[in-house]
Simulated assay, not measured.
Amino acid sequence: MGSRKVTSFDVAERAGVSQATVSRALRRDPSIGAETVRKVLDAARALDYVPSARARALSTGATQRIAMVVDLDNPLWSLLVGRLHDELASRGYRLTLLAGHGDPADVEEHLIGGGVDGVIVSTARIDSALPATLRRRGVPAVLLHRYVEGSDLDAAVADDRAGGAAAAQLLLDAGHRRIGALLGPEDTSTGRDRAAGFRTRLAEADVELPDAWVRTGAFEQAHGAESLAAVLRGRRRPTALFCANDIIAIGAMNAAHAAGVRVPDDLALVGFDDLESAAWPILSLTTIRVPFADMLRTAVTLLLERIGGFDGGGRRVLHPVTPVLRATHPLPSPDSAVSSAGAGRRGSP
């Protein structure tokens, strides 16, 4: 189409329908059949068409609706969506949730019709194509909790690398030298940065992190529960574990209890995030606090500035994290199930 602006008539010609049908299909008018909607969306995507409805919304704020792309299977976001809803409501916007664990094309189809003023993406993985698609289509968007390297979208994130280092320091300060880790997914900025900070601080302290004491997996309780037995399998075991989030740590604690492993006497644990449940007396989990409320407010502010016309380069706002000392990381117990005989600063499994 050259440099000429693509119009709904171009989409209609490519899809083999009328311009009026294009308009109704993009509005998801129930009078338009599913196959016709699919043809219109395919044509619009192929032409990089930005509907005039979106242009009006961006200039007038007519929809007053923000979409959040979220993994609804992740219990972290089920706890935080309410806070985001309230933050948006206080600024005159409504929240729409889009499940991000399915086909990325489905997410784009929900956004192409101009039904929202902007998008918050909380599910981005390192190789995610959605941020670039949103930027290319001129959709105001912000990344929350995770970022994508090289993306020109704004991002509100925690200092995960510093948090990983702080978790290592907590265990070092408690006297632990045989330390393992249940890390998060390597294709997320949170999993990658927390692991990098943790590994770097241990290396600086000349403390080895043996491969046999490390497992990588999803940010889920199942990862903590299933991985605990693996890292405790050898004759010599770690006396402490860093868990890349509280949900993993809770899974590990449950598995430890079932196996008769005492936390923290036999095994100290440090989590990450500081979910409300981490402070429950039955858990009293030492963790790294992420200021989620501050991050949510920052994400909304960045997004509304984009909707209001700010067109500068991508901004990444890094929020500091804070260690929270509770009951799961004391000194190694002298009568631990793990013998300390022969253990030096650089232990091995």
Rank of each mutant, 00 (worst) to 15 (best):
M295S: 09
R135D: 14
S339A: 14
A205L: 07
R135Y: 15
Q169W: 03
I250G: 06
G61W: 10
H319T: 06
P75W: 08
D160H: 12
G115A: 14
R345Q: 13
A141D: 04
A258Y: 01
D273V: 09
P332K: 11
L209F: 05
D206N: 03
V50C: 06
S59V: 08
P281M: 11
V22Y: 01
G113W: 03
L228M: 03
L318A: 01
E204Y: 06
D106E: 15
R146F: 01
V40S: 06
L304Q: 15
V317M: 05
L331W: 11
L296W: 02
G114N: 01
R24G: 07
A43R: 03
S52C: 09
L302D: 05
A132I: 00
L170G: 07
R4I: 01
V214I: 12
G2H: 04
D29R: 03
L170P: 06
V317I: 15
A222W: 08
A255N: 12
D265S: 15
L304C: 07
V231Y: 05
A259P: 00
G308K: 08
A25P: 00
V6Y: 01
R45V: 04
A181G: 12
L144Q: 03
V22I: 06
T298F: 03
A249Y: 02
V231M: 04
L202P: 01
A67W: 02
F9D: 14
S340T: 12
V142Y: 02
A279I: 09
R316E: 12
L241R: 02
G184N: 10
L303D: 03
G197W: 04
P75C: 12
T298C: 13
A279Q: 13
T287F: 06
L98R: 00
G138W: 05
G114S: 10
A55F: 09
L143H: 12
A337P: 01
N254T: 10
L202D: 06
R14E: 11
W280V: 07
A15C: 05
R83H: 09
H319M: 07
E276F: 14
A156K: 06
G308Q: 10
I282C: 10
C243P: 01
F242I: 00
R14S: 11
A240S: 00
S90N: 14
